[in-house]
Design a protein around this nucleic acid. Structure first.
Lengths: 210, 210
DNA sequence: TCGTGCCTTTACCAAATGGTAAAAAACAGG
DNA sequence: CCTGTTTTTTACCATTTGGTAAAGGCACGA
C-alpha cells in the first residue's frame, strides 16, 4: 500500500499519449518549440486542447516527452556499431543507417536540430546522461581501431561530428537542397554515394597490406 | 519631380536601422522567428517597441531585412573562390574561410539555419535569386576542374552541400558540441585540421604526376 | 439501475504579444 | 526664437496562447 508507484496506464491512456506524441512530433519539428501551439498539436491529434493537458502536464512536458522517447531510436544507428566487425565496414554501415534515418525520419532530425539550435534548453540533461556516454564509448572504439592500424589516423570525435553534420544536413536543410538540387538528379542515390566516397577516402588506411 | 523615389534616409535613420538590425540578429538567431519578440529586440536595441515599428513595417519586415542584408556577407567566402587559382587550394581556402565564419559569426549561421529549418518561408525567393546562381556557377567551376583531372572525380553539388553541412554544424550545433567535446581539447584547431584532412583526401586527384 | 471512476468537452481566464493613436519632444532651417 | 518636420514616448488595443474549472459523458461492475 505504501508503494509510491503510479497506477499502470490504461489502454486508452497509452493510445492517446501516443497519438499526442505523434502529433507533437509533427508540429514541433515543423515550427520549433516556441512556434508550435497547443491548438495545433490538439488538432493534429484529433482531440481538444484541455485533453492534452489531461494527459501531459503542459506544453513543455509534451516536448520533453517526445524528445526523450525518440532519443533511443535516434541513437540506435550509432549504438549498433559493432566492436567485433570490420572497422571500415562498421563505420560505413553506421553512415548508411544514418542516411536512412534522415531520409525516412526527417521530422525527428528537425526536432532535435531545433532543440540544439536554441541551445538545447530542454535536452541538456539527456545529452549529458545518454548521448555523451555513447559518444565516448564509440569514439574510444574508433580510436582503438585507428591505433591498430585498421583505420586511417583521424580524430574520432571530429569524425563522428562530421558524420552527424553531413547526414543530418540532408534532413534539416531539405528546404534549401530542394531549391538547389534539381528534381531530376540522382537525389538520395547521389547523396549516399557521395557521403560514402567522402568517408571511405578519409578512413581507408594506408595500404600496408601485410 | 515625378520621381517615385523615397527620400534618402537621414543619418539618424541609418544609425537606428542598423542598431535594430544588430539587435534583431542577436534575438532572432537565439530564439528563431516565432520565439523572438519585439520587446526583446527593442530592449536589445535600446529603444521602445513602437519605435521599431517606426523604422520597420513590422516583425516580419525586420526579419526579412536582416536576412537579406546578411546574405551577401554570408556568401562572400564562396564568391571569392577563384577560377584561376589552384583547384585544391581554392576549395581548401573556401573551407577555411567558411570555418572562420562559423567561428566568428555563429549568430549569422544560426539565423539562416533557423530559417531553413522552418522551410525557408521568408527566404525562398532570395535563395532562388541569389544563392542558386552562385551555387550553380561554382559547381560548374568545380566540375570543370574535375574534368581537367585537377581534382578527384566527385559530385560537385554534393561536395558543396557537405562543405556547408560540416562547417555550419560547428556554429549551429555548438550547444551539443560543448557537451561532447571537452574544453581542454583542441577545439577549433582540431576541427579545422579534421575538416581539412577530410576534404583534402576526397579531392586530391590520383597521382598522375605528369 | 445505480454508482464510480476514468475520460472529454465547454466556457473561461490571465498573460504575452504584435501593433496603433496621438501627443510630446527633439531637431532642423530661417 | 519661431515653425514645420522628424523622432520618440506614453498609453492603449485586439488577438493569440498556455492553462484552468467544472460540468458532462461513458464504460462497467454490483
Amino acid at each position: 500500500m505504501a508503494d509510491g508507484a503510479v497506477k499502470k496506464p490504461s489502454r486508452i491512456q497509452l493510445r492517446n499519449r501516443k497519438k499526442i506524441m505523434t502529433a507533437a512530433l509533427e508540429v514541433f519539428s515543423q515550427h520549433g518549440y516556441r512556434g508550435a501551439t497547443l491548438d495545433q498539436i490538439a488538432e493534429a491529434a484529433g482531440m481538444s486542447k484541455p485533453n492534452l493537458i489531461y494527459y501531459f502536464d503542459g506544453k513543455e512536458a509534451i516536448h520533453v516527452a517526445v524528445l526523450n522517447a525518440l532519443m533511443d531510436e535516434w541513437l540506435a544507428p550509432l549504438a549498433e556499431m559493432d566492436p567485433d566487425g570490420d572497422p571500415l565496414q562498421e563505420i560505413l554501415g553506421y553512415i548508411r543507417r544514418k542516411m536512412e534515418m534522415s531520409r525516412k525520419y526527417p521530422r525527428e532530425s528537425r526536432l532535435f536540430a531545433n532543440e540544439i539550435l536554441q541551445g538545447a534548453p530542454r535536452m541538456a540533461p539527456h545529452l549529458e546522461s545518454t548521448l555523451k556516454p555513447l559518444f565516448e564509448e564509440k569514439c574510444a572504439l574508433i580510436e582503438g581501431w585507428a591505433a591498430d592500424g585498421r583505420l586511417a589516423q583521424t580524430d574520432a570525435r571530429q569524425l563522428v561530428l562530421s558524420i552527424w553534420a553531413i547526414t543530418q544536413h540532408y534532413a534539416d536543410f531539405e528546404a534549401q537542397i530542394r531549391v538547389l538540387v534539381p528534381d531530376e538528379s540522382g537525389g538520395w542515390a547521389d547523396a549516399n554515394a557521395h557521403v560514402e566516397q567522402l568517408f571511405r577516402k578519409l578512413l581507408t588506411p594506408a595500404e600496408t597490406s601485410d
